[in-house]
Amino acid sequence: MGSSKVQRLSGMQKQVLSLYRGFLRAARSKSEEERCKIESIISQEFRRNAEDVDRKNFLYIEYLLRRGNKQLDQLKNPGTTGLSSLQLHYSHPSSKG
């Protein structure tokens, strides 16, 4: 049995999880097929950033959060049917300490 210590989430971590949750909620309002695509893309994007981005690179993380929130706002628009109209960039971030 693992220890039941409560992991305190930092403020920035909470923002990331909140953004992730927001995307999943927005995906619900789309068609079933489109929803699967959105969830897959979002999952990959968040996990890739989780691995690539240095957690102490606060400036870059804040930038990603702002960009993510803008993309989420677009996705919430009923006119947006999927993520193809969003310009997600897959370039690797340069996390220089």
Partner: peptide, 21 residues
Amino acid sequence: PNAHFQNDLGLDSLDSVEIVM
């Protein structure tokens, strides 16, 4: 019933979000 998402099931925080959703 006593399983912890991350300690026992090996999930990360993003997975926890998905489970709660």
